[in-house]
Design a protein around this nucleic acid. Structure first.
Length: 503
RNA sequence: CGCGGGGUAGAGCAGUUGGCAGCUCGGCGGGCCCAUAACCCGCAGGUCGCAGGUUCGAGUCCUGCCCCCGCAACCA
């Protein structure tokens, strides 16, 4: 059984989760669920990044200890993932003992390998960026990202020999061993390599809230280095450990484009230095604006994920967020149109289609025990549906979640069109035998629709499948589920509840 | 020479390797009555930002130009 190890970034817990975190995590969940459905052994990791001076400061401002502060915020993330039905296998926190051990081991390994050297660093440090800036990066003496003047800081630091490993990373990217997606990000990263990057420091002397270096307890790991290591520490980071052997390297690190450099260059370089394989895919999705504007607290247009869930439900939000624009690109979330789209795609689309099909089955094929009973199979549509499935799979395999959603809409439309052409309500009077075939086809289309829907809207899919009398589908692989004719004659179906009430 | 995204039908967007311009919403007109006043069909609506170039052929490649948006903090 192939394995599929997928990760989200670990989110910085200096505040509660926002819509961007939800977007990344839902996307990862969709891919994780798709791969489980396909029969892969999936390991889906998410978590929180809890060290660094910013956290320490925020905790102090809140009058709490760093750990207390982190506990509270980490819980908010966990609660949101719970509400959104995120199916992660593990939620790692960088304050977990497991992680701390992993970081110590990994940094120790880098030191042994001679990839770390100590030196003194004097530089302009930007609090906001949590890193030293070069003179060249400054604009009018200020950090271009934070518009604050960096402070001149001098401290002992350990450095990672990035320059020494960069050519190896470049080679892996070149050979496609590390796939950077989408394509535009790949060229961006190759451009960065061409420009040349400096060795970076992996430790901080001035920061206290962090993981102490095993070879120098006066220093703590730089928060970025600490964070990246979570992808292996979560698995136990033990070359002989079963979990680690099975799942590493990651099949895909998913993230937003702002942190591509860390994942596509720094992290693979560190892994190479430590003698470990690099991740197979580094996928950076885009940023989005909301209703044409960048989200910001001062503009008051931030969207609380919980409020969205309250209005539309977790299932609809998963769908709405991912159907807005091509996955990977920048785009705009038209929150103002959510109710329009909800009604169009979910209430009038999926909800109405399953409703009309199931109620026809119940009405025209009612059995003595009540409810509809699936009639004889008909093979009319094996080709059409197989074609849609092929495109759906292609889309998912290329991480084009939006394109996969298009296929769901296409199948839905195909089903609605079929109803119109066949007019079951007339066949009910003129041709009962033909009617049975038509109903069979419709029920079967509904089943396929539900399976396709599963990664995006798992709860909805399960409900439709249960209305269709399906119970053991979870034990089957997609390769089998997507074949035409999966619905067995004699199965009882029921109209079920209204899936998406109009709003 | 800061970085990045974008200019395609009224609105919002697709257009992978160049090959007769598509989708959704909205508008108009029909149809249907199984369904969540839902569904189906048809119509209107585009000089694909501008100007050159390459090509048998460019929204798609090249050059130049114009315009819009994001880039303090939070932060995917």
């Amino acid at each position: 059984m192939p394995k599929f190890y997928i990760t989200t970034p670990i989110y910085y817990v200096n505040d509660k989760p926002h819509i961007g975190h939800a977007y990344t995590t839902i996307a990862a969940d969709v891919l994780a669920r798709y791969h489980r459905l396909a029969g892969d052994e999936v390991y889906f990791l998410t978590g929180t990044d809890e060290h660094g001076s910013k956290i320490a400061e925020a905790a102090q401002a809140a009058g709490k200890s760093p750990k207390e502060f982190c506990d509270e915020n980490a819980a908010k993330f966990q609660m949101l993932w719970d509400r959104l039905d995120i199916s992660h296998n593990q939620f790692i926190r960088t304050t977990d003992e497991l992680h701390i051990k992993g970081v110590e081991k990994f940094l120790g390994r880098l030191k042994e390998a001679g990839a770390i050297y100590d030196g003194e660093y004097e530089g302009l440090y930007c609090q906001g960026c949590e890193r030293f800036l070069t003179e060249k990066e400054l604009v009018n003496g200020k950090c271009p990202d934070h518009l604050t003047a960096p402070q001149l800081i001098k401290e002992k630091n350990y450095f990672f020999k990035l320059k020494e490993y960069l050519s190896k990373v470049a080679k892996l990217i070149d050979e496609g061993k590390i796939k950077i997606m989408p394509e535009s990000r790949r060229s961006e990263v190759l451009g960065l390599i061409k420009q040349g990057l400096d060795d970076f420091s992996v430790s901080r002397e001035s920061v206290k809230w962090g993981i102490e270096l095993p070879f120098d307890r006066k220093q703590v790991a730089y928060v970025w280095v600490d964070a990246l290591i979570n992808y292996i520490s979560a698995l136990g980071y033990d070359e002989d450990g079963e979990k680690f052997k099975k799942f590493w390297p990651a099949d895909i690190h998913l993230m937003a484009k702002d942190i591509i450099k860390f994942h596509a260059l720094y992290w693979p370089a560190m892994l190479i230095a430590a003698g470990l394989p690099a991740p197979k895919v580094v996928f950076a999705h885009g940023f989005f604006t909301v209703d044409g504007q960048k989200m910001s607290k001062s503009l008051g247009n931030t969207i609380d994920p919980d409020a969205l869930i309250d209005s539309f439900g977790a299932e609809a939000i998963r769908y709405l967020l991912l159907s807005q624009f091509p996955f990977g690109q920048d785009g705009d979330i038209k929150a103002g149109n959510f109710s329009i789209q909800y009604n169009a795609d979910l209430a009038n689309g999926v909800g109405n289609f399953t409703s009309r099909v199931l109620s026809m089955a119940e009405k025209y094929l009612s059995a003595s025990g009540g409810g509809g009973v699936v009639p004889e199979k008909d093979y009319t549509f094996s080709d059409e549906v197989a074609g849609i499935w092929r495109q759906y799979k292609e889309a998912m395999d290329r991480f084009q979640i939006d394109a996969a959603i298009e296929m769901i809409k296409k199948l839905n439309g195909f089903g609605d069109g079929y109803v119109e052409r066949q007019k079951p309500w007339e066949l009910a009077k003129t041709d009962p035998e033909e009617l049975k075939k038509v109903i069979y086809n419709l029920l079967e289309i509904a089943r396929h629709l539900a399976i396709m829907l599963y990664p995006i809207m798992p709860e909805t899919a399960e409900r439709i499948l249960s209305f269709l009398g399906q119970s053991d589908w979870k034990n089957r692989k997609l390769a089998e589920l997507k074949d035409w004719g999966g619905l067995e004659p004699g199965t009882k179906v029921e109209k079920g509840a209204n899936l998406f009430p109009r709003i």
